[in-house]
Design a protein around this nucleic acid. Structure first.
Length: 259
DNA sequence: AACGCTGTCAACCGCCCTCGG
DNA sequence: GCCGAGGGCGGTTGACAGCGT
């Protein structure tokens, strides 16, 4: 698999490229076991590996790390990837961070080669479901898509419908929730691509170190159906609100998760 | 058996961010 | 504030495997 070791470099003279050998893996593994991660560029100098620092880092993070989980992506992991991608877009490192033992590269490859072909066509189909004419030829494909689609729909055992997620009460003079996501886009609050736009919109605010901390905290609660705690987080958010976020987007995020 | 097509996935590339001087 | 080095990340490439014809 992977590229053959054909040094193409005019500018990287002396730097090996392509597939890693077992010997190189051992050298890198031994070095990191002894010295720890980091200082990737110095690794090649210290060990004699003719690899760039980036290449060493990539090899370690994507393949050699002892906590890498091998084997097929499970149904639960697939479900989580789909949900997280819906929330975060192509932020593979963040998505992988929620999947212990999985790497961003692995998640990205899995999405590009498998999930994107199921989820995206399905979403597209939903937009024009009145015009689709199923054929016998597509039966198997459709069945597979349906299977994936169910992952994104509330299951019979899904959490109860949460209380309405209304705009927070006003002491902070927060803007009212928009009538629809499209209106948010129209006002420039969210980019047309809602999944990536949200991450750009929700920059760190007081009380939370990052959008990810805030967002994942809510995400976990949604998954668990813990609407009470979710409300507490929202209230906490309201008490810390410093105006750097637009809370209307949070309402939409939660709607997105639930839907 | 040979060939072409397609999917998979390790690895590379280039951009961007952070941090220290 | 500027600059360069180091590192992180998403997008893309390309070798290989498997399958169909």
């Amino acid at each position: 698999m992977g590229r053959s070791p054909c040094p193409s470099g005019k500018k990287d003279i002396g730097i090996r490229k392509g597939a890693w050998t077992t010997a190189e893996d051992m050298i890198l593994t031994d070095y990191i076991a002894a010295h720890g991660e980091g200082k990737w560029r110095s690794i090649s100098k210290q060990t004699g590996l003719k690899r760039s620092g980036k290449s060493c880092r990539l090899r370690w993070l994507n393949y050699l790390r002892p906590d890498i989980k091998r084997g097929n992506i499970t149904r639960d992991e697939e479900d989580l990837i789909i949900r997280l991608h819906k929330l975060l877009g192509n932020r593979w490192s963040l998505i992988a961070g929620r999947l212990p033992g999985r790497t961003d590269n692995e998640v990205k490859n899995y999405w590009n080669s498998y999930l994107s072909k199921q989820v995206i066509p399905r979403d597209h189909k939903d937009e024009q479901n009145d015009t689709v004419n199923n054929t016998v030829k597509n039966n198997n494909k459709e069945a597979k898509m349906e299977d994936t689609h169910q992952l994104m729909m509330p299951s019979p055992a899904a959490p109860p419908v949460p209380p309405p997620f209304l705009p927070l009460e006003d002491p902070l003079n927060l803007p009212a929730a928009p009538a629809s996501p499209s209106s948010m886009c129209g006002e420039g609050l969210l980019s047309p691509d809602i999944t990536t736009g949200m991450s750009d919109l929700l920059e760190p605010a007081a009380g939370f170190s990052s959008f990810d901390e805030f967002g994942f905290g809510q995400f976990d609660l949604v998954l668990e159906g813990d609407w009470g705690s979710l409300q507490c987080i929202e209230e906490s958010y309201a008490s810390h609100y410093d105006g750097s976020w637009d809370c209307t987007a949070l309402n939409y995020i939660t709607d997105e998760w639930i839907l």
